[in-house]
Design a protein around this nucleic acid. Structure first.
Lengths: 153, 153
DNA sequence: ACTGTTCGTTTACGCTTGTAATCAATAAAT
DNA sequence: ATTTATTGATTACAAGCGTAAACGAACAGT
């Protein structure tokens, strides 16, 4: 990721970011058109969101006449991956495999996706565990081996 | 999932939930022990979080003397999956495969996990797309085929 | 030159969240 | 019986968030 993404992007802000990612360089006008239609937000609301993203330096601005063109250095896939990483802190490492499986089952995947995922799994085999070590602390995980270890379970 | 999970669980609340999921039936005392150690939270803070979860009816209570035993009907995997589902609304369906791949690459997986994921992929092949249809609206996605369609791209 | 429109900025406001202190009721200890 | 500890409930409070109106400067149209 190009920028220190300690920034938290809220749900409403994601909508704005998606427009910026889609368009690359974009005026507030366009963002407002897209989102007022999609979400029924008032112009003012969308302006607020843009303003907040600029404050957080997630959006860059370039003056063009009296108005601004917005863009971002934050890459979409980087932010998606970071956000998911964050979330997976809430899940025991032993359960991640199962969780990914549910994702696969629910996703719409192409043949190409599937081939690529299979390849990834094959590569993964080289570093696979017999049993994935649990990363939970004692008291926060059901697995209860290793009871005397601070690092659960 | 056993209960209508329109409920939003905040990050801080997840910590409490993980204790409840780990223990099944648990007193505030234990929750406080675990989380004050893990997060350095004050007793009062953790009580607030428990109280909020009870208000949201995410936690059930059973009186035992003057104190309560807490439990939940919300299942961990259901909540994890719901939350991920939610999040994936922010991602173009065409990109989900790639996103899952990054998850796989970063995850710790067992041989068993991998075998199971492979199976899931094989099953998935039967309903695989040649090209995954994009579910974004116009203006929020880079893929620009089908320009005249409201449902992008 | 005036007027309406556009667009960024400022202000608003109630709700949620993280973090906690205080209070009140009860139980335990002396 | 009085004191102390436990524990749930109430109150607090600043920051973040969703949603938006109002303001002011600059532009566009006439």
């Amino acid at each position: 990721m190009a920028i220190e993404m300690d920034q938290h992007i809220t749900n409403a802000e994601w909508e704005v970011m998606r427009v910026v990612w889609a368009q690359g360089e974009v005026s507030s006008k366009v963002i407002i058109e897209v989102l007022s239609k999609k979400r029924g937000w008032k112009e003012a609301t969308i302006k607020t969101l843009i303003g907040r993203l600029v404050n957080k330096r997630v959006l860059q601005t370039k003056k063009e006449g009296r108005k601004f063109i917005y863009s971002t250095e934050v890459e979409e896939d980087a932010l998606v991956n970071d956000t998911l990483d964050q979330f997976f802190h809430n899940v025991c490492s032993k359960d991640v495999g199962q969780t990914i499986q549910v994702l696969i089952e629910k996703a719409m995947l192409s043949h190409e996706d599937i081939a690529s995922l299979k390849q990834a799994l094959i590569r993964k085999e080289r570093e696979a565990y017999d049993v994935v070590p649990c990363n939970c602390i004692k008291g926060q995980c059901r697995c209860h081996h290793n009871k005397n270890n601070e690092e659960c379970c």
